[in-house]
């Protein structure tokens, strides 16, 4: 791997973190309307997985989808505008945080319905199989979403038909405000892979290089027509379920301890410095550039107009 590879991983993770911090700030101030779910602490997963994809590949995302969208290559200014509900946003202000998409980079949409993405990703993979391309489709979902019936229907169909789709579980231990182990029959979501005769792999989801490598194998397998895989990324949700969540269900201490022990960006920084893959100066350069980019994105969003009321009926039907 060349320097560019390592610096891209850092840039993407840091871009997600910085974007999310800004979103949190403006959401707390009430300037970003609607429900917002942050990806802080889980950046390594979207980053490591999407580093294996091109814009011809697809992803299906979740309500916690800003990280996936950024990692797939979407522009942060148009994302920021969308979250502010502005007409310059990706969805012209009709989607917001939970319904953001950028079809030009193969990001087929966040989804406000937990577990709503599996079957759509499976269908996109089916389309590519019918078209005889080697493009793949990736669906991100949480530990909570793995208890939806759609998980079963999609994994069975994808495996029965050998479809090029990779199921990426982000096990952040929290299903909204409920600890997943209190509502889930098994400890490791990946063991469910056996029921569909597909590979099931447990991954340290806060180690971006490990995520990248395991995802590379699963994606390569899908590209070769060998069918789906189920990857379980072990991580931890650092922020509340949504911005403003009082988090009565856990202590700040517990969260702090987990973040200190396994902040994916800090861990990666240590890895690249120790391995002499990037220099401190190079990292600082990335930080400065991304900080400027996100500031510019905020400015773009704030200066953009809200959609005109006349847009209400636009884009409802094609014909």
């Amino acid at each position: 791997m060349d320097k560019q590879f390592y610096s891209d991983l850092y840039r993407t993770m840091y871009r997600i973190r910085t974007f999310e911090k800004k979103i949190e700030e403006f959401s707390m101030k009430g300037e970003i309307p609607g429900f917002v779910h942050l990806y802080i602490g889980e950046e390594a997963i979207a980053t490591g997985v999407c580093a294996n994809l091109t814009h011809k590949d697809y992803i299906q995302s979740t309500h916690r989808g800003h990280g996936h969208t950024i990692a797939k290559g979407a522009r942060t200014d148009r994302m920021m505008a969308e979250l502010f509900g502005k007409s310059t946003g990706y969805c012209k202000g009709k989607g917001g945080s939970m319904h953001i998409a950028d079809f030009s980079v193969g990001m087929l949409g966040a989804n406000g319905i937990v577990g709503g993405g599996y079957t759509l990703a499976t269908g996109a993979a089916l389309a590519e199989k019918i078209k005889k391309t080697d493009n793949v489709s990736v669906v991100f979902f949480g530990d909570g979403a793995s208890n939806r019936g759609t998980f079963h229907e999609a994994l069975n169909m994808a495996s029965a038909w050998n479809l090029p789709v990779v199921f990426v579980c982000e096990n952040n231990e929290w299903a909204s405000t409920t600890p997943y182990e209190t509502t889930t029959a098994i400890k490791d979501i990946s063991v469910r892979a056996k029921g569909y005769d597909v590979p099931g792999v447990i991954v340290d989801g806060n180690n971006v290089l490990e995520v990248y490598e395991v995802a590379a194998q699963a994606i390569e397998r899908a590209r070769k027509g060998l069918g789906p895989s189920l990857l379980e990324m072990k991580t931890y949700r650092i922020k509340g379920h949504y911005v403003g969540d009082p988090e009565m269900y856990r202590t700040a201490q517990e969260v702090h301890k987990r973040f200190e022990a396994s902040d994916p960006i800090k861990r990666y920084e240590a890895q690249v410095l120790e391995g002499r893959l990037l220099t401190r100066k190079e990292i600082d350069q990335i930080i400065q550039e991304v900080d400027e980019e996100i500031e510019a994105a905020v400015k773009f969003a704030l200066e953009s107009p809200f959609p005109d009321e006349s847009a209400l009926y636009e884009d409802l039907y094609v014909d």
Binding site: Y118, L120, T122, A124, A127, T150
Partner: peptide, 28 residues
């Protein structure tokens, strides 16, 4: 049978996969 497909008894996946295929340029 690539274009006329017998599915599993999974109505949710049938509709969901049709939507996903439509997003990827097909007319299911």
């Amino acid at each position: 049978t690539d274009r006329i497909m017998d599915t599993p008894i999974s109505e949710t996946a049938i509709i969901g996969a049709a939507i996903g295929a439509a997003l990827a340029g097909m007319r299911p």
